[in-house]
Each structure stands twice: as structure tokens, then as C-alpha cells.
Design a protein around this nucleic acid. Structure first.
Lengths: 175, 175
DNA sequence: GTCTGCATGTAAGACGTTACATGATTCT
DNA sequence: AGAATCATGTAACGTCTTACATGCAGAC
């Protein structure tokens, strides 16, 4: 099985909001979603070509100044379908390093979208399970306070993981 | 400039705690530090060979059962020096996806190590700066509550980033 | 006129995941 | 006897970063 290629969905999602040039996509990564996903222009431009070959996007040349050509990319109907299939496919696992769920949520523009409720509930379940699992580990490993000093680093990162999950759950609760 | 190759430092750090086989290293990634860094065995075994070529580690064959050979890896003095140089080199930037600092902290086994204070203070400064920057962005983008509805997804992930930084700062404060 | 930013692209290499491959050990 | 786990390794592929490369536009 191939890797997920999430970049394609992010580009499609961004173009679904507004048509953009490659450079503007690059800026979106720097300003808006850089906290959750990063991509350099050297990754964006080739991906745009691939998406265009698949007819999920197309571009039109625009002139800036007197002669500088820029390519404005537009999502196609097929592209929107492809994107939505990803966005509303329920997640079955979580990865603290690649937070796909938050990206999916980012692309919901309408605050009253009925999808939000089920998506958040599903995600809450996953994170509560994980928090429970981490709490169990803390009980097993560090019930005896003596053990904290013997593996202080381990204790700290377990505490950090627990804190991170709690924070995630709180944030989900506020949506 | 080459990429950082943080995996080598993690392996050295783990072997500094205790000599381990490749398989045991794999398990450390699954159980202990998987929340902060992931590596599969297909990445670990080649890295062990590279580290051994650089004489930062060496191995001894051990027999399990009647004939199964396993390789137990030990860190060398050169390996320890190389590792410590990384561990106590001050960080100048933070990356929400690759949290190098937390790893460095994980490898401090002694709770009263005097390095901890300066490391934490330095890291606190970086995260407070980031939090301030994110708060400014919230003020600029969403002072007008109307704008929240127009870019709800953007609002949510900005809130999430702010919440994450606060959580990180709280955790640093408790060390 | 020079500097910063806009704009696009490719190449090389490092990093990471999945799949392929094999065999021994331990537990039930 | 069979299943799960221990144990080690390579191959193929996909992703990501850094560096190389070029040129126009706008501001001062």
C-alpha cells in the first residue's frame, strides 16, 4: 500500500476555497496551515502538475506587470469530488505528528455544517481512548514515586503526552 | 546543508541508557518515545551499521535459546561525546512536528542535572514568543467576531495552535 | 539602481513507510 | 502442532528538505 499523499488533498482544499497560484499556495502553508502541515515550493509545483494531469485542477495564465506570467490554478468538479471523499472519510487512527483530522476540519468553511458533529465525536472517542491508555501507563510505571527519579525523562514525556491529549480533548469539546 | 539525522542521536541516547539489540531499540520506539518520534526497524538496522562504522557504537553477539544469534549494541566513549554535544547544544528554533527538545530532555536521567534549568528557560522563551505571535494573529484576524463565521476552519486551527503552545508552556513550567 | 519580494521550476539527497524475506523461540 | 513474538535484514517507493537556477515587479 502506498503512502497517503495528503499534500494533494491540502492543495485541492486550498484551491476549493479560492483559485491560487503556486506561490500563493506556498504562502498559505507559511501563514495559515504551517502549524499543522508544512510544504515547500519545491514540493508544491510538481504536485500541481500531477493534479493537473489527473484533471483534478486546471490553470490559466495571468499577466502581472507587463510580461510576467503566473499560473492561476482552479479546482475542477472531479477535484472537488475527490477532495470531499477524503474530507468526510472517517478516521480510524490518530498520529500525533501528522494531524489529518485538524486539516479536514480546517477545510470546513461553514460553521453549521452537519458533518462537524459526527467528525468531532469520532475524533473525541479516539483521543479519549488514547488518554485512558496513557493514564494506565502512568499508573503502571510510576505508581511508586521512587520510580519517577529513576526514569525522570520517561516520566516527563509521558506527562507531556497526557497533557497533550487532554488539551486536544478540551479543544474538541469547544468546537 | 544536510538534514539533521536525529535518529542517530536517539539511538545513541537509548544505548547510553542500556546496551540493546536492534529489536529492543524498535520496542523503545513503540513503547517509550513513540509519542514524540517514530522509527521502523527498517530504518534502525541500517542506522546501527552506519553508527558502528563511525565507531560510535559496537556490538557483541549473544545467543538466545540454542542457536539464535542476536547483536547487542554498546555505545563507545566517542559515541557518548557525540551524543552529549547534541543534547546540550541550545535550540534556536521550534518545530511543532519534530520536537527535538522533548527528546533531549527525555535523555536526562538525573532529575537534579544542572543543565535542565537553562534548557527549560531557553525553550520557554521560544514558546512564549510563539504564543505571543499567535495571539497577535488572533487579534488581527478575528477581533471582529463576524470574521469567525467567515473562516471558521482557520479560526479553529489558530485556537488549536494557541492552546497547544499554552499547554507546552504549562508543561515546561512544571519541570 | 539596488534590494526585497514575487514567481516558477529542477536536481540531489535524506528521511520515512511499506513490502519482501527468512528463520528461531516461546507460549498455548 | 500452530500461533504469536523475537530477531535481523534488504528493496522499492514515496515524501520532504536543501540547494541550484532564473527572471520580473515594486518600493525606496
Amino acid at each position: 500500500m502506498a503512502q497517503k499523499n495528503i499534500l494533494q488533498y491540502i492543495i485541492l482544499g486550498l484551491l476549493k476555497q479560492h483559485p491560487k497560484t503556486g506561490y500563493e499556495l506556498k504562502q498559505s502553508f507559511e501563514n495559515d496551515i504551517g502549524e499543522f502541515w508544512q510544504a515547500k515550493h519545491s514540493q508544491i509545483y510538481p504536485e500541481l502538475k500531477k493534479l493537473e494531469q489527473k484533471k483534478l485542477i486546471h490553470h490559466e495564465i495571468e499577466i502581472v506587470g507587463t510580461k510576467m506570467e503566473t499560473k492561476k490554478y482552479y479546482i475542477t468538479t472531479a477535484g472537488k469530488d475527490y477532495f470531499l471523499k477524503w474530507q468526510f472519510l472517517e478516521s480510524t487512527d490518530i498520529n500525533p505528528h501528522k494531524d489529518e483530522f485538524t486539516l479536514k476540519l480546517y477545510f470546513i468553511e461553514d460553521k453549521s455544517d452537519p458533518h462537524i458533529k459526527t467528525m468531532v465525536e469520532n475524533q473525541l472517542k479516539l483521543h479519549i481512548d488514547k488518554l485512558n491508555h496513557l493514564n494506565e501507563r502512568e499508573t503502571i510505571l510510576f505508581s511508586d514515586k521512587e520510580d519517577i527519579n529513576n526514569a525522570y525523562g520517561h516520566y516527563l514525556i509521558l506527562k507531556k503526552a497526557i497533557s497533550r491529549e487532554k488539551d486536544y480533548i478540551d479543544w474538541l469539546g469547544e468546537i
